[in-house]
């Protein structure tokens, strides 16, 4: 192998070795590479001087700009908050019906609430607010606690059966599990309740009468004399045709046998009062739309 071979094609020198047929040219490093190295290093250097960059043993270089990503976002969030305050202050100061009369605010509400509802509520109540087994529909007028804005706001703030000190508490007793009612008794009262909302039952009039008696003794304290529910207790109306859990035999038997205690989270920590008000307004609109 000669010391200075040349590549016939380019005329460049090779390094002089050959490995299993492979040779290397000794081409110099193209100038563009040096430029790229220079530029990227200078840029990095400048960046290091300006920004937090190099660790020392117990601290690090903070950079001339004093930039701190956490403070920056705190600041940005605070600024955004102040900007929001320019229009959302009334949301926490005025009652709902007055807010409704300010079209600008309602425009903001309509722009904001759907995404909020999607991120925080749709998991349970569905994207349209129609609910599902175990999660009440929010667009019918069968309210557990009430559909006026104040009540909804309170529900959102404290939740229902939630780990919040002021949470609303609503409990459907486990009549079977607690040995208050026997299985035939439960079946009878279930038949009776079904008949209240005009559901088909195959029960005989005697059974229905028994159910009525059981109902009067055990259930009216919560669901009311007329079984139309008591809002202070969050006990639902049993005469309408909407159900949280279901009106079929099996589901209703389970409801009375094992009891129910729906859990609606408290949003006091997660959402601001203004956000809760937007959701409330949005919900009322959804319900009104569904009504039509």
């Amino acid at each position: 192998m000669s010391v200075k071979e040349r590549d016939p094609l380019t005329g460049h020198e090779t390094t002089g070795h050959e490995w299993n047929g492979i040779t290397e040219l000794n081409t110099r490093v193209p100038r563009v590479i040096w430029w790229a190295i220079g530029i990227s290093h200078v840029w990095a250097l400048v960046y290091w001087v300006l920004m937090p960059a190099w660790p020392l043993v117990h601290t690090y270089t903070k950079g001339l700009l004093g930039y701190d990503q956490q403070l920056v976002v705190d600041d940005r969030v605070a600024r955004a908050y102040r900007e929001l305050e320019t229009w959302r202050a009334p949301l926490t100061e005025l009652p709902a019906h007055q807010i409704r009369e300010i079209p600008e605010i309602m425009a903001h509400v309509n722009a904001t609430a759907p995404a909020l509802f999607g991120d925080y509520c749709a998991g349970c109540h569905g994207t349209e607010g129609a609910g599902g087994p175990g999660f009440p529909s929010l667009v019918d007028d069968a309210w557990l606690w009430g559909g006026d804005a104040e009540t909804i706001m309170e529900t959102l703030r404290v939740g229902i059966n939630a780990p919040h000190p002021e949470s609303r508490i609503a409990q459907m007793l486990a009549f079977g599990a607690l040995d208050i009612l026997t299985r035939p008794q439960i079946r009878a009262v279930v038949d009776y309740v079904q008949s209240l909302s005009g559901l088909e039952t195959e029960a005989t009039p005697e059974v229905l009468a028994e159910g009525e008696a059981i109902f009067a003794e055990n259930c009216v304290s919560c669901h009311g004399e007329d079984a139309r529910g008591i809002r202070d207790l969050g006990a639902p109306d049993l005469t309408d045709d909407t159900w949280i859990y279901g009106g079929d035999d099996a589901t209703m038997f389970t409801t009375v046998n094992l009891g129910r205690q729906g859990w609606m989270p408290s949003f006091e920590m997660r959402l601001s009062a203004a956000q809760r008000m937007m959701l409330t307004l949005y919900l009322q609109d959804l319900a009104a739309e569904a009504d039509e």
């Binding site: 190295i37 990227s40 990095a44 960046y47 920004m51 937090p52 960059a53 930039y67 990503q69």
Partner: peptide, 26 residues
């Protein structure tokens, strides 16, 4: 980036990644 990792470490990661482009393209 932007996580709870101290920002100085992110700076190093970012600047070296950019400088890394040169040998990579080389």
């Amino acid at each position: 980036h932007y996580t709870a990792l101290p920002q100085w470490a992110q700076t190093l990661g970012m600047t070296f990644s950019v400088m890394l482009l040169v040998p990579s393209w080389a």
